[in-house]
Write a protein that binds this DNA or RNA. Structure first.
Lengths: 340, 340
DNA sequence: CTGTTAGCGCATTCAA
DNA sequence: TTGAATGCGCTAACAG
């Protein structure tokens, strides 16, 4: 707001009418005669008038803005989600403020408050890895601001969610490998206490059972600390083909560090190991053709999340039950190069 | 703004003082006694007060917001740039509104106006492919809003720019290939009339000359229409190794469509062709390990752009000459697998 | 159909 | 150090 911009009063004055009429005309109200409306719009264009939406928002108590917080914008899954959010919001006449928590709880808290200050009409977020409790979201709840958490699970009920179906994903991933002819399928999993990984593991087990493949504990590699787990994982792979002909990769942190380890040793994950992963993880480091799958999956999730949130904005008067939408995950697949 | 939020008046009333004192206290003015300040802040926390920044902005005529427009958020280079912009802006106490033009001029115009309505303090943008003239930016200029264009060139002087050094990039890319032992280096270029491609070609030529490698017209493949050019390109590659042992890829549109063509024919670009590309193009579709290079390059560009823009916001009173910053491009390299 | 009046929530000038 | 008064630019209720 550097050069004092034109206001509705300027237009009104130069036309010898009242500013409220100008306001009505510019908002295309039908309580202004077509003639004056036309006159006003012409003058507005002539003067290069640009509505001050801050004042308008203040007055109307709505911002038509959705706040979005993701851990990291540059992660392809999230940038695709943002893309989907922005498109859907734009169509509905909403703007989007994008923030990244960089996986820090402290930043997340600060961002939530910024969004509150900005009176966003709704918040869509994927929580940071550091986030364990949800006290910082209380304010939004009190203010009755629609909020939705996507991709990452939160253990507290009461929020809207858009999530991937982990069990189904694990099941289908494993089934795919089995159908490819894999017999010794390793499973890279995450911290044992997290439901995400529990459910993926369940899917893996059920698929094996259904195909009479015995489940072997040692083929499941749980990881939390990236570096060490990656090494273990890499070593198992190096024993191939005695051990492993397929990998269901449900934890990229480990997979990536495994890759780094292998890279140092100048070994690529052999091309005749089939790999399947989830589309919301940065698995592209391991599997090359993952990018478009991730993009599609993220974009879809963003779109659905936004649609849900827009619905809630509309129903703001009506108390609605929190909703959870579970999507069938797209899988990222690298089939074995040798037909097994 | 669903449940009527607390205002400074509520705080004032419940403390039996005036709202202006509350305002001063909350803005940490030294014109309030420490005692009342403390009292006010306590009460504010107690009531869960959240400043209405819309009103504040309206009053102060500044938004501490930077508007960003990119063609497509999900493109890795741009999401990385956004990431860099957001981080730098956040540190300086600025918010960021992100928009995508989806390469459409019409959307770009609409977005520019939305940003103007929102009274952003500055705009950082990368223009859409459809954008040929810059009339839609006039409003910003008139309003004296700092604006910066990054990555994509615009032919009109007068704007701030952050760009890659195309000549240097072309030169270094080609030099790298030559040092790898390549003798027949193809160059995938773009529309002949665009300076970007002219300069990259110049770099290519100079590098060849310096190494006494004759320049051959037929190794330069200009492309505009994606599909057909991709096919031509692919066919040249398929004639390898009679023809080509290295590619300086300066136009991904063509490269990607070439890849699609080759994929249909179940051919990968042979591993013993070395490829070099620019970090601001979606070359990751062609070269696998490009992601981190692109991320770094984008993030750096975003950071530098934002720093420049922040500087300009500060100097708003002082008329400054438009600035152009030219960065040395990072290259994306896939060396030949057979040592030539 | 148009004008008058009031106020959204805050920051700031002027007085006290 | 504090209070009173004003207005940022816009919209909406009410009156005519």
């Amino acid at each position: 707001m550097k050069n004092t911009p034109i206001t509705i009063h300027d237009i009104a004055k130069s036309l010898g009418i009242d500013s409220s009429t100008v306001s009505r005309a510019l908002n295309n109200s039908d309580r202004v005669s077509l003639k004056t409306k036309k006159k006003i719009i012409e003058k507005a264009n002539e003067l290069g008038y640009q509505r001050n939406i801050l004042a308008s928002n203040l007055r109307k108590k709505e911002t038509r803005t959705i706040g979005v917080i993701v851990p990291r914008i540059s992660r392809h899954f999230f940038s695709s989600a943002i893309s989907g959010i922005e498109e859907t919001a734009f169509k509905a006449g909403y703007k989007v403020i994008i923030c990244q928590s960089l996986e820090k709880l402290e930043r997340e808290i600060s961002l939530i408050n910024t969004l509150r200050e900005n009176r966003v009409d709704a918040v869509i977020m994927s929580i940071s890895m550091e986030t364990q409790n949800y006290n910082h979201l209380d304010g939004l709840t009190k203010e009755n601001t629609p909020m939705l958490i996507f991709d990452r699970h939160c253990n507290v009920p009461g929020y809207n969610n858009v999530l991937l179906d982990d069990f189904m994903g694990g099941y289908e991933a494993t089934m795919h490998l089995i159908q490819q002819g894999c017999k010794k399928i390793a499973h890279f999993s995450g911290p044992k206490n997290l439901n995400v990984y529990k459910n993926r593991l369940k899917g893996y087990k059920v698929a094996l059972e259904e195909n009479d493949i015995p489940f072997k504990e040692e083929l499941v590699i749980n990881s939390r600390l990236m570096k060490e787990d990656g090494k273990e994982l890499a070593q198992k792979v190096l024993q191939y083909p005695q051990k492993i002909d397929g990998i269901f990769c449900a934890n990229d942190a480990a997979a990536i560090s495994a890759m780094q380890y292998l890279k140092k040793k100048k070994v690529k994950i052999p091309e005749d190991i089939a790999i399947v992963g989830f589309s919301n993880e940065p698995i592209s480091a391991v599997i090359e053709p993952a990018l478009s799958t991730i993009e599609q999956s993220g974009s879809e999730m963003g779109k659905i999340a936004t649609e849900l949130v827009l619905k809630q904005i509309k129903n703001k008067s009506i108390k609605t039950e929190p909703e959870t939408i579970v999507l069938k995950p797209s899988l990222i697949i690298r089939d074995s190069s040798k037909k097994i």
